[in-house]
Nucleic acid binder design. Structure first.
Lengths: 258, 258
DNA sequence: GATAGAATGCCAATAAGTTTACAATTGAGG
DNA sequence: CCTCAATTGTAAACTTATTGGCATTCTATC
């Protein structure tokens, strides 16, 4: 999930036809949450789809040691709660209202009723969820394989798509960039310095310039490029792919061979 | 995605009713792949659902530097290709046949035809994809928040569910564990040593004993526990949640405040 | 234009993971 | 029973990221 979603993925709200959005809204109960109110907590089991009508919702988890990790923010039109609705899974994150917020809460019965009348809805949900799964998969891959400067470059590139319609810089604080990447501010600053030295970005105050998106993309490709050859190297870790490699309940063996 | 899926998630194949599985199989074209054949490459755009009929498929990516990362393995009954089918997204990983493998390839037209007759199928797909998204989300969270020994413990706990029906040890090499966790063998060994010192696991040759699953789970909970309080600390990084925090196209700000 | 609050830049100490290398142990096959 | 390959255990040097702190620069606002 995380951050990137906002840039890489069409929100469910964007995929819904006006008619379906209207039906969902009509089938739900608008609930008003004052600023900082807990909408639901991690672990809650409350099946239902939620659509943000106004205000914003912050998702994150607090650790017992006082740490806190915010995963993403959602604004009007965005939906959450598919997990609880389709797979009976508990909430993965706390959801807290930011500012005066109104959320349409659609319970399972109401959703199923709409689904029965509008089969098209399930296809849309499927597209939205699949898209997010795709983004999540890519993110996990990137976290495992790419050095921080490359991940930072990727994120900036995506952000610049939206922000740079007019060629302007990405409006983003280094602290925010760090949050989005899941690293400390110092590290994001260092990554940014690397990209700066290469002339790929221009850090400013509260913003980051991307002079040449195409060049940035080219650099990313060069650093992240994946060849199609299932090459194997080294001695110690080289295994999967050659032998029979039992499958049974034995294993998920990932291979890291570099 | 990654590894954990195999343990945490019901595969699509498990969710399908025999009737639907039969329909899908009938609607697809069985394709035979000799050992080590490339079924599809990362980046390919070939909409269609694939069901493994026999043999196995390995998913992973190769880097131009010779590195290789295997993400997961799939055996008979498991499906892939939802991305390409529902969201028109390119393949995220190379897929290679392991051993003589037969895969039923169901193209979009065939799938849509079945879907039209069996609306129930979309609900099942939705459940499967949602479940995987949930697992991926949790994994990303874990990667960002949990120290390696805890992640290793989680994985071993999940593996032990299947392997320890009879109280036996998990059959898994330290190298394989490292692959699954996406770290080096040295690191997985160290994590294992930590758990060993605590008496939670018993490393052996090609296997890892889990004497007391409940105690292992208790330890994991204690180390991974998340409180529901949206606590905030520190000065530097504390921001989101208090102020207005613009949302616009500005930002996905995650917060890491620890 | 002065100033307080934000944001950036940087430093040192520490922690975690990687790579490379080598020794010790295990177990399966001859 | 013996040998060899696979697996595990460890160590040192290195890289990357974190924490905490402090100085500097920027900018909105009064």
């Amino acid at each position: 999930m995380s951050d990137l979603f906002e840039f890489t993925m069409p929100a469910l709200g964007d995929l819904l036809t006006p008619r379906l959005a209207g039906l969902l809204r009509a089938g739900g109960v608008p609930v008003r949450y004052p600023d900082q109110t807990l909408i639901h907590a991690r672990g809650d089991i409350k099946p239902g789809l939620s659509m943000v009508r106004s205000g914003a919702v912050r998702f994150g988890n607090a650790g017992s040691d006082g740490s806190y990790v915010v995963i993403t923010l959602m604004g009007p039109g965005q939906c959450f709660g598919e997990f609880s609705l389709f797979a009976d899974l508990p909430r993965t994150h706390d959801a807290v209202a930011i500012g005066e917020t109104v959320v349409d809460q659609i319970n399972r019965a109401a959703f199923d009723a709409i689904l029965a009348v509008e089969p098209e809805l399930s296809r849309i949900m499927l597209t939205a969820v699949t898209g997010r799964l795709h983004a999540a998969t890519e993110l996990i891959d990137d976290m495992r394989r790419l050095p921080l400067p490359v991940r930072a470059a990727k994120l900036l590139w995506q952000m610049s798509r939206a922000s740079t319609r007019s060629g302007g810089p990405v409006r983003c604080t280094q602290t925010e960039l760090a949050f989005a990447l899941g690293v400390s501010r110092v590290s994001s600053g260092r990554a940014l310095a690397v990209l700066h030295k290469l002339g790929l970005v221009k850090p400013g105050y509260g913003q980051i310039g991307v002079p040449d998106r195409d060049r940035l993309q080219a650099w990313i490709s060069a650093r992240a490029k994946l060849s199609a050859l299932p090459a194997r190297r080294r001695s110690d870790e080289s295994r999967s792919g050659t032998g029979p490699l039992k499958l049974g309940r034995r294993g998920c063996s990932g291979v890291r061979d570099e």
